[in-house]
């Protein structure tokens, strides 16, 4: 009996070894998943690591489950999502970028043998973007400045979904933290509206809109001439994208950590907006966008 067990364990181990010869690179199906996944893929390929392309594999639960199960080896995830993976969404720790990253890294290392590599200095969280021609004259770049400006009679009209306007962690939390209140006349509620619709409304000044509910790295923001407000008091959980890799894979290819570090460090909010915009607005294939970015910035060494 013991012998059989040992044998099957050995077979499994040798087999697992054979299977992990290729690094399976994956990502979420959305636009940013396409960009980030192709960046990782291109860097590993260029470094001569054998890869299997499973980029834009599926929705978050699918990709996450696949990584935990060992079906894929690496994919980019957002720090804030760890709050949901470990069922700790209510805790304030996720609102601080460094703490959130450290906590996610610790939890996944302990429980799942996963390693969070260097994150991008960009926060793809729920927030507000203001038209550049409004924000610049008013000197508004952070939520604190926005709060003062609005409280002081600044002329704002925000396009948002009803969920953003009504759910406690969203607009009400911003208003409480930054000391401003938007009257019903200052709100354009697009019930069931997504960020594409709100950005379009602010961009086209539909019904006088000059601000929009956004996700920080939405590809439309740059072309629509909007500026994302910095959440300087950490009201929202931080969603920094970082590659998450299986510890076993990293042990086999330790160079991956240093290969990806400069790439993700280069991905600022504006850079991601621009790259996402090339895919989303111009309709370019994500693989081409990633390759071009890496080449242009000398990140393929």
């Amino acid at each position: 009996m013991f012998r059989t067990l040992m044998l099957s364990a050995a077979v499994t181990a040798s087999f697992a070894g054979a299977a992990s010869a290729q690094v399976v690179v994956s990502s979420k199906i959305d636009t940013e998943g396409g960009v980030l996944g192709n960046l990782i893929l291109a860097v590993l390929d260029h470094a001569g690591i054998e890869t299997e392309n499973r980029v834009q594999l599926g929705a978050t639960p699918v990709v996450r489950q696949a990584l935990v199960a060992g079906e894929i080896d690496i994919y980019p995830e957002y720090t804030g999502n760890a709050a949901y993976f470990f069922n700790r969404a209510e805790e304030p720790i996720w609102r601080n970028a460094a703490d959130a990253y450290a906590e996610a890294k610790k939890l996944d290392a302990e429980q799942n043998d996963l390693v969070w590599l260097t994150p991008a200095p960009a926060n793809n969280t729920w927030g507000v973007a203001v038209r550049r021609d409004v924000a610049e004259p008013a000197g508004v770049t952070t939520f604190s400045q926005f709060g003062q400006w609005v409280a002081g009679g600044g002329n704002v009209k925000l396009a948002a979904s009803s969920e953003f306007v009504n759910s406690a962690p969203a607009l009400p939390a911003f208003q409480a933290a930054y000391g401003f209140t938007l009257s019903p006349e200052q709100l354009i509620v697009l019930s069931g509206g997504d960020t594409a619709a709100t950005i379009q409304a602010a961009s086209n000044q539909t019904s006088g809109a000059n601000a929009a509910m956004v996700y920080g790295t939405d590809g439309q923001i740059a072309v629509s001439n909007l500026v994302v407000l910095e959440d300087d008091k950490n009201v929202q959980p931080v969603y920094q994208p970082a590659p998450v890799i299986r510890a076993e894979t990293l042990a086999e290819h330790p160079q991956i950590e240093e290969l990806l570090k400069p790439v993700f460090e280069s991905l600022t909010l504006e850079t991601l907006q621009e790259l996402n915009g090339k895919v989303q607005v111009d309709g370019l294939p994500a693989a081409d966008v990633a390759q071009e970015y890496l080449t242009a910035n000398g990140l393929l060494k």
């Binding site: 077979v11 499994t12 599926g58 639960p61 699918v62 489950q65 696949a66 199960a69 060992g70 079906e71």
Partner: peptide, 26 residues
């Protein structure tokens, strides 16, 4: 979603299943 786990287990533990192209994802 429900199929990912059992099929993934099959692929990891049965070389024959893996050779047949069985995976938890895809």
């Amino acid at each position: 979603g429900m199929l990912i786990v059992p099929l993934g287990w099959l692929a990891a533990n049965l070389p024959a299943a893996h050779a047949l192209g069985i995976r938890g994802i895809g």
